[in-house]
Amino acid sequence: MTQTYLGIGTNIERDKHARAAIIELQRLGVNLQVSTIYRCPAAGFDGAEFYNFVVGIDTDWALPELSRRLRAIEVAYGRPENAMKKQDRTLDIDILLFGEEISKQSLQLPRCDIFKFNFVLQPLYELCPDLVIPGDGRSVRQVWEQEFNSIGGMSNLTAITLNLSDDYQ
């Protein structure tokens, strides 16, 4: 089993797609953890507000197959196959951390969003503060303590309540 952390974002039919992501992701592994869901402005473009959160999961899937399956989930819920960055989206699922994997290729691991966006770092911190980030050497807590305020802190994050109790157990 590989401990994996995924960043989830949606700004089209947010409640529906946040729930769908959680339901679909629980099928890909065990020990599903879901962070607080945060509402925040679109980053880098003029779009509707997003729901962003992080899911932790232990999975047996190899990285290429997991990536393929995540993409299939996005497409199944309406994300165009040729979707561009910085545009509204039904569902965006990014692999933030995949065990001890380090990669500078097209699937960058650890994903640099951890260090750049408060809507990624805050929920990751909630789930695994003591996890050491591969290749960085700092724990998520250390990154949070050193960088969180400089990337916006809680200034644009609003915790929302989304009733998930009936959707996954």
Rank of each mutant, 00 (worst) to 15 (best):
S67D: 08
R68K: 14
R71H: 15
R71P: 04
I73H: 05
E74W: 07
E74P: 13
A76L: 07
A76E: 10
A76S: 15
Y77T: 04
Y77V: 04
R79I: 11
P80N: 02
P80T: 02
A83E: 08
M84K: 15
M84C: 07
M84V: 12
Q87N: 02
R89E: 12
R89F: 11
L91D: 11
I93P: 05
D94Y: 01
I95P: 02
F98R: 03
G99K: 07
G99E: 08
E100R: 06
E101G: 00
S103H: 03
S103L: 06
K104A: 13
S106D: 15
L107M: 09
Q108K: 15
Q108P: 06
C112Y: 08
C112A: 14
C112S: 15
C112K: 14
D113K: 00
D113P: 00
D113R: 02
I114F: 06
I114D: 10
F115K: 13
F115D: 08
F115T: 09
V120E: 09
L121C: 11
L124V: 02
Y125T: 03
E126Y: 06
E126K: 03
L127A: 13
L127N: 11
C128I: 09
C128L: 09
P129L: 02
D130L: 12
D130I: 01
V132E: 14
I133C: 08
G135L: 13
